[in-house]
Simulated assay, not measured.
Amino acid sequence: MENNSFIFADGTDPKMIEAYKKAQETFKYFWREQSWEYRRIVPGLNLSCVKAAFSQEDPETGENTVEHMWINDIDFDGDHVKGYLINEPNTLTNIQPGDYFEIPLNEISDWLFAITPPAPTPKGLSKLFSSSSDPIPKAYGGFTIQKMRSDMSDSERQEHDEAWGLDFGDYNEIEVVHEQKEKPENLVEHPMSRNMKEDFVNFLKEYPNELTNVDENGLTLLHRETIAGNLSSVEVILEAGADRNLQTNHGKTPLDLAKQLQWEHLIPVLEN
């Protein structure tokens, strides 16, 4: 992406503020996809990043300058989105690309990931005339981007999308999970969670200590799989005897996190 692809949004626009809210409410789907991306041997995402507001106060006037910019290499503990700035600020001088930030979830302004769809297999005569160009990666999320696209003319949208090199689709139908229309069940659970269930059972049999290991945030495996919304994984972990009452450094059980992130399909399993 070129630097001019990063448009700094007007935070006073009601529709833009609504886009921020939608991004915060659906961030869990970004994190679910990102958490599986970290486990893939072959990367599946062309792009994944989160947008947040950064500010600097002018010492002379006291006025705040705000820029919305993107971070990547994302981590998430259920409360804070963590990553490294990838934009060169336009006017801010107190931060620079590569700086690390931990941002409360309710303060992010957008998220975006992109996946290249499989190329269709040519059949019959179409084999002779098929294009050799690769499919364009499809964008998911990007609520502020879609709001801005809605304000553009057709030619402006085309130019914008070409600058990003992404297929943003219809700005009135923002998708948050891969193949959302074709497979609506993906909204409930990531297909890798379902498909990897047997392998995960065998993994825990081989490495039972994974059930009790705790990271620097106080997160157990059960906490992490709950944050990612992985029902099959949560069921396997509980069946293996994990303690569902362990708390993070912020005093939260897996059930607390399921409720906080509104993973409704996990709540009954964790309450039992």
Score class of each variant (00 low, 15 high):
D199I: 11
V214N: 07
E216M: 13
R194E: 13
G229S: 05
D170L: 13
I227Q: 05
V177L: 00
N172C: 09
E264K: 15
R194I: 15
A258W: 01
K205E: 13
V269L: 10
E179I: 00
T253D: 06
V214D: 12
L204Q: 04
D199T: 09
Y171A: 11
S232Y: 09
H190Q: 00
P268S: 09
Q260G: 12
L246V: 12
L238P: 04
R194D: 11
T253K: 05
E198G: 08
L211V: 07
K252M: 09
T248L: 14
E239Y: 08
Q180C: 00
E206K: 14
E189F: 03
T253Y: 04
T220V: 00
T212K: 12
V176P: 02
F200P: 07
V269A: 06
L257Y: 10
M196K: 08
L204F: 06
L221V: 05
R194G: 11
D243A: 09
A242Y: 00
S193I: 02
N209Q: 14
R224F: 02
N202S: 13
R224P: 01
E239K: 15
N186P: 02
L211H: 06
Q262A: 13
G218Q: 04
K183Y: 04
K259T: 14
S233K: 05
E225C: 10
E175F: 04
